[in-house]
Design a protein around this nucleic acid. Structure first.
Lengths: 142, 142
DNA sequence: TAATTACCTATTGACATGGTAGGTAATGCG
DNA sequence: CGCATTACCTACCATGTCAATAGGTAATTA
């Protein structure tokens, strides 16, 4: 298993914010009520999204969070890389991994590398706007 | 990160056994010496592979492990599903997961489902025989 | 001033991972 | 037979992450 609750919650919150983007700043209390996730846990995630400029947070009454861009300008890959730390399928491909001695002779590295590219390209091809449609954007629901 | 050392070690051992498939039963001591992994840890993995019929183990002097099939008859996906337990990118797609209440309305499920298919199909398209070639079988090294 | 809301720091319990320890059982060889 | 060799078994351990909770502080509005 690759994507943890942290990343999945982040996506769901972002979609929820996108669906209410015309309502000004949305308090987390509302989002959490709709999405049925732990408020205290989501708070941590929001700090991450906020510090990295994906959303803007405003304190106090009438405050909450708001998207900083239109939904079609958020790639799923970007959000997941931020919340998960990496999307690499194996440790040796993680950003900042110590170089592997065996890399040159490794029989499996090309496979991992190609898998990494596939996953990254796929998740970068989808935006929050795509996820607002139930079918994920291509009309085909599995 | 999706594939742990357990799965990566399993693949490396299987490749090593494939490369020495004409030498009869190969003791783990030899494989571990070549692959530079923990013998005690690999022992656990071998029991799993053996119990599931991927390899055959023979006790005593002159014993060791041997592949039960030709290398081209092992799909990487099969080995990884066995050692990792699942290849699903999210918990709700794991085999035996409790059904999610939100599935019907879930905005992200189609995406996860498609990603799951992509990963599975890719890893099932590669065999141990492919991995014995340095380039992974398509002549293109990233 | 009070209510509301984001944000901060610390802690927790559960679990998986990677590995070690110390055996037992089977097999071949001298 | 006895010994070395090898797979296999059970148990344990250290570390880290995950998901969540607790208990605040700071900013903002009414």
């Amino acid at each position: 298993m690759m994507i943890s609750s942290r990343g999945r919650y982040a996506l769901r919150v972002m979609i929820d914010l996108a669906e209410h983007q015309n309502d000004g700043f949305i308090p987390m209390k509302d989002v959490v009520g709709r999405q049925d996730v732990s408020q205290k846990y989501v708070e941590h995630i929001m700090v991450l999204l906020s510090k990295n400029g994906l959303v803007e947070g405003v304190h106090g009454k009438g405050g909450g969070y708001r998207l900083n861009r239109p939904p079609e300008a958020y790639r799923v890959g970007e959000i997941l890389r931020l919340t998960e730390g990496t999307l690499a399928p194996v440790a040796c491909l993680e950003c900042g991994a110590k170089p592997c001695q065996r890399a040159a002779a490794c029989r499996t590295l090309p496979m991992w590398s190609r898998l990494d590219h596939m996953i990254g390209e796929y998740l970068d091809s989808i935006t929050i706007a795509d996820l607002m449609k139930q079918d994920g954007g291509d009309g085909y629901v599995i």
